[in-house]
Design a protein around this nucleic acid. Structure first.
Length: 126
DNA sequence: CTTCTGACGAAAT
DNA sequence: CATTTCGCCAGAA
């Protein structure tokens, strides 16, 4: 069962816990090169025409600016999970950002773990 | 085959 | 901050 690129992306997204958010870039990094943030966006966009099982928590993937890129509905779903957004529409990635996949799980599936620098980059904004 | 369009992102202005 | 520019590129038409 050769999992496709999108399947691998969905696998990673499914591991983002409720109440946390990951950026397209983070997901791409975890899946590993040559996957780019853009492709992650493509994969998420593809979900509009039918979700694979188990369902993918697409709402937990946001852009590097800490904002949702698909309108108010996505933000609403996240707020129901406890993610807080300020008036400008961005969240504090230091508090709600995803630390990365469980190292053991990542290793077992050939995924990458997020390095410190990957998360350090989520400072400012707020 | 060509063209167009992005659920991106980093850097420059 | 908001905008623009550019790199990169998978799909749909």
């Amino acid at each position: 069962m050769p999992s496709t690129l999108y399947d691998r992306i969905y696998d990673v997204v499914r591991h983002i816990p409720p109440g946390r958010v990951a950026t397209y870039g983070q997901v791409a990094t975890v899946v590993g090169a040559p996957v780019t943030a853009r492709e992650v966006g493509e994969a998420m966009a593809a979900l509009r025409d039918g979700q694979p099982e188990p369902l993918v928590p697409w709402q937990r993937v946001i852009n590097a600016q800490g904002k949702v890129s698909t309108g108010p509905r996505q933000q609403h779903l996240l707020e129901q999970e406890g993610v807080v957004f300020n008036a400008k529409g961005h969240t504090d990635l230091r508090r709600f950002g995803w630390p990365g996949p469980d190292p053991a799980w990542a290793a077992a599936h050939g995924f990458q773990v997020l390095s410190a620098t990957d998360t350090e980059q989520q400072l400012d904004l707020f």
